[in-house]
């Protein structure tokens, strides 16, 4: 505004109103800054108190639901790993996708309906994060599918496809473990999985794949989920096996039914 006024009335600098305007600006700036400083200060202390409360709540939830395997002080046990320093993001991924708490001990925790509300998950995440530094929730801008899908697809083929399949249809791992399918997932969980490396998955930290590149991968997966196969039904994107089964059962099966019909004699 001031910039514009200077441009348009550069000769009005000596106007008597200029002094008044200057005074008003000065007062407003200092006053505003002071007000802002005091409110942030109170907000900070308030936030700290709220955080303290959140951690406390998270600790209770953790003790009630997770501690039997992970230990009352996150130290872990024979049943589950220590969680000191795994970070809020790991908790958000594991509990948010329903993998934790596990229904039973098995080769791998399966995805299921989440057992907690997002508030409760945030509380537990805050509690675990308070135990030591670890990956926190990513900046929102890395979760938007606005990156370069072509680059994401290439990164996906090189880094992810050997377990998750090029179309994100999933695949088998050793000893009963598996790489899950990746269609229709929330971007925060894709990001969280890459950073925290849950279960059999390796960690792809920011030096391996930068946050921007992670966003590209999210963009690609979003493209695959959002755009249905152009060729018609995709038969599960499983490749030649489902195609072969289809042609034998429905293609050849249907034609054999027709041959039987063609050669049938009316009674």
């Amino acid at each position: 505004m001031a910039k514009i006024s200077r441009k348009h009335r550069s000769t009005g600098r000596r106007s008597p109103l200029a002094t008044v305007a200057l005074l008003a600006i000065g007062l407003l700036t200092t006053g505003g800054a002071y007000a802002l400083a005091t409110t942030t200060a109170t907000a900070e202390s308030q936030a700290a108190a709220a955080n303290e409360q959140l951690i406390e709540e998270g600790k209770k939830l953790f003790a009630a639901n997770c501690a039997s395997c992970h230990g009352l002080n996150l130290e872990g046990s024979k049943e589950g790993p220590a969680l000191v320093g795994v970070g809020a993001l790991a908790v958000d991924f594991q509990v948010g996708t329903g993998r934790m708490p596990m229904a039973f001990q098995g080769p791998q925790a399966a995805r299921k309906a989440p057992q907690f509300t997002q508030d409760q998950i945030d509380a537990m995440a805050a509690y675990v994060a308070s135990s030591g530094p670890g990956p926190a929730l990513p900046d929102e801008r890395f979760l938007e599918a606005t990156g370069d899908a072509a680059k994401g697809a290439e990164l996906f083929r090189i880094n992810c496809a050997m377990c998750h399949n090029v179309a994100g249809a999933g695949g088998a791992l050793t000893e009963g473990k598996w790489a899950p399918q990746l269609k229709g997932l929330d971007a925060r969980y894709i990001y969280g999985a890459m950073v925290t490396g849950p279960q059999a998955m390796p960690v792809f930290n920011d030096l391996n794949i930068s946050p921007e590149e992670k966003r590209d991968i999210i963009t690609y997966l979003d493209y695959v989920s959002e755009n249905p196969s152009v060729g018609g039904f995709d038969l599960g994107s499983l490749g030649p096996v489902s195609e072969g089964l289809f042609i034998w059962i429905f293609g050849l099966g249907g034609l054999v039914a027709i041959t039987v019909w063609l050669t049938a004699r009316s009674n």
């Binding site: 697809a153 090189i158 090029v166 038969l235 195609e243």
Partner: peptide, 26 residues
């Protein structure tokens, strides 16, 4: 009605990546 061999999913050939679930035709 049914997709077959969606080559656009697979990407160009590059000797380094191998996709899970790679199979030949039946």
């Amino acid at each position: 009605v049914f997709t077959i061999n969606p080559i656009w999913n697979y990407g160009p050939y590059d000797p380094s990546p191998v996709s899970a679930g790679t199979q030949p035709d039946w």
